[in-house]
């Protein structure tokens, strides 16, 4: 919520290389994420998207190269600085990562309880509000994660990621495994968060609708490198075969056509998500 210039770089990845044994995952990746943009990482299975995300959130170290997040060099970070940095971002894991021993409200309130001196009543209130912000009913708060459906679990995980008002939000497959209606809800939610709070959002996704409707810029990973960066319409005009794969298939074309139909509608009024294509 700090007043900053729009073009400030939030994440700067330069020449990152990673290998597991003989298997090379990244060989020299360069990327930049700017403040208040919605940035998506795409790529085939095994292209190292998740590894790159894990490297950005300090769960894994690259073998060489440097990553700067919110101005801090992750390679040269002390323990205290790492904790301070971790409070400034939120992560929503693919399978939620909610603690099974705690109720949903306790899960969402956990970062507040751990890092602030707020009273319990206030923490519960804020947690309930964050839950409602992500579109969950108040009754869900008293349930345990094992009682939730996949979509509710993701929303609860998002609410927990938002608990400390992060400047930066990482989403791992926010719509994977959701029905089209809930996925549409996530589209709107992500955009609303960025518009309301000026969040920078980095996400991994394969959801073409999410990519076309929400992402400002998209990076395509393949063969250990960044194959291309740009908005979806820019990418769709590139000739790189690794990128063409994403647009060539029937699903890619359908999502692109929908986007083009909507481009006209958007200028006239509020964009609604189009009815999803049959899957």
């Amino acid at each position: 919520m700090q007043s900053t210039t729009q073009d400030e770089t939030v994440i700067e990845i330069s020449q990152v290389s990673t290998r597991f044994g003989d298997h090379v995952v990244h060989s020299g990746i360069d990327l930049e994420v700017r403040r208040a943009e919605i940035f998506a990482l795409i790529g085939g299975s095994g292209s190292g998207k998740s590894t790159l995300l894990r490297e950005m959130i300090l769960l894994q170290r690259p073998d060489s190269g440097s990553i700067r997040v919110l101005g801090a060099d992750l390679q040269a970070l002390g323990d205290d600085d790492a904790i301070a940095l971790r409070r400034r971002w939120g992560v929503m894991f693919q399978h939620g990562g909610l603690f099974g021993a705690l109720t949903v409200t306790e899960n969402v309130g956990l970062p507040l309880r751990e890092h602030t001196g707020l009273a319990d009543g206030l923490i519960d209130e804020i947690a309930a509000w964050k839950l409602s912000m992500t579109g969950l009913e108040p009754e869900v708060g008293a349930q345990y994660p094992s009682e939730l459906s996949g979509g509710m679990m993701k929303r609860a995980s998002l609410a927990r990621a938002l608990a400390l008002d992060p400047e930066l939000l990482f989403l791992d497959e926010p719509t994977a495994g959701l029905d089209p209606d809930s996925a549409g809800g996530v589209d709107q939610l992500v955009r609303r968060l960025r518009d309301l709070f000026g969040l920078t959002i980095v996400m991994i996704t394969h959801d073409l609708d999410l990519l076309w409707q929400v992402a400002d810029r998209v990076a395509v990973l393949g063969e250990g490198r960044v194959q291309g960066v740009g908005s979806m319409s820019e990418l769709s005009r590139m000739d790189n075969p690794a990128i063409r794969k994403f647009f060539g298939g029937p699903r890619g074309r359908a999502a692109q056509e929908q986007e083009q139909q909507q481009a006209g509608a958007r200028s006239s009024g509020e964009p609604g998500r189009p009815p999803s294509k049959p899957k």
């Binding site: 919520m1 109720t103 309930a128 409602s132 009754e139 708060g141 008293a142 709070f197």
Partner: peptide, 26 residues
């Protein structure tokens, strides 16, 4: 500050919308 005023307004709408909402008791 303008940014703070906007945030306060957004939250104000939420508070208004939630007054009287029962807090679930376990």
């Amino acid at each position: 500050r303008p940014g703070f005023a906007k945030l306060l307004e957004i939250v104000g709408r939420e508070v208004a919308g939630r007054t009287g909402a029962p807090i679930p008791v376990s």
